[in-house]
């Protein structure tokens, strides 16, 4: 119907459809909502999008998002700067922060090593992590990377590079999720879980 026409509506639908998690139908629904909206609301949305693009930057220490040079977490003197938690993406920081269990600071890699996706170690913020790790105040590096084949490769790679710095290198416990059944967990995961088993408190 209108989708094949080269007009402003199909242009908007295309642009919305480009966003992650937005299918064609959702894009249509959003577009029609914007059409029904009054002009003030629509320009506020457009303004919000442009403002976020002009104001948000990456923290020059950890690559979290911020509106100044350093992010809120790196700037917070209450955080324990001797522990660096390494994550793939900014959303992982949000997940860890929600748990209220972690008091240290972060380092965002910007992905995981994946030859198939064309992501090599040079594409990630690994050099910056190595520079930060030289600091004598840093005592522990906690690898909180997603448990996938790519995440695992990244973790093995990082632990090799970090070894000469003589820091404590840890990884978050992974594998069997709470409420899961052992019979459905792969051998690799169970094997690693058994190697990294701990005493019952």
């Amino acid at each position: 119907m209108f989708e094949n026409e080269n007009n402003s509506l199909s242009y908007l639908i295309d642009q919305l459809h480009r966003l992650p998690g937005i299918g064609r139908k959702t894009a249509q629904r959003l577009a029609f909502h914007i059409i029904k909206d009054n002009i003030e609301d629509a320009s506020e949305l457009a303004h919000a999008i442009l403002e976020v693009k002009s104001k948000i930057r990456y923290c020059n220490q950890c690559f979290n998002i911020t509106e100044s040079d350093k992010c809120n977490i790196c700037n917070n003197p209450g955080r324990d700067a001797s522990t660096i938690c390494v994550v793939e993406d900014i959303v992982d920081i949000i997940a860890i922060e929600k748990s209220n269990e972690y008091q240290g600071i972060y380092h965002v890699l910007g992905g995981a090593i994946s030859p198939l996706a064309g992501i090599s170690p040079d594409d990630l913020h690994i050099k910056e992590l190595l520079i930060r790790s030289q600091d004598a105040d840093v005592k522990e590096i906690l690898l909180a990377i997603n448990p996938s084949t790519e995440g695992e490769a990244t973790m093995i790679y990082l632990s090799k590079l970090l070894k000469p710095y003589n820091k404590r290198i840890t990884r978050i416990a992974s594998g069997v999720p709470f409420g899961a059944h052992l019979e459905f967990i792969d051998n690799g995961t169970i094997g690693r879980d058994i190697i990294s088993r701990r005493d019952v408190e």
């Binding site: 090599s120 170690p121 084949t149 490769a153 990244t154 093995i156 790679y157 090799k160």
Partner: peptide, 9 residues
């Protein structure tokens, strides 16, 4: 180093 990370898995 990267190759070894894949080899291990």
């Amino acid at each position: 180093n990267q190759m070894e990370a894949w080899n291990k898995q």
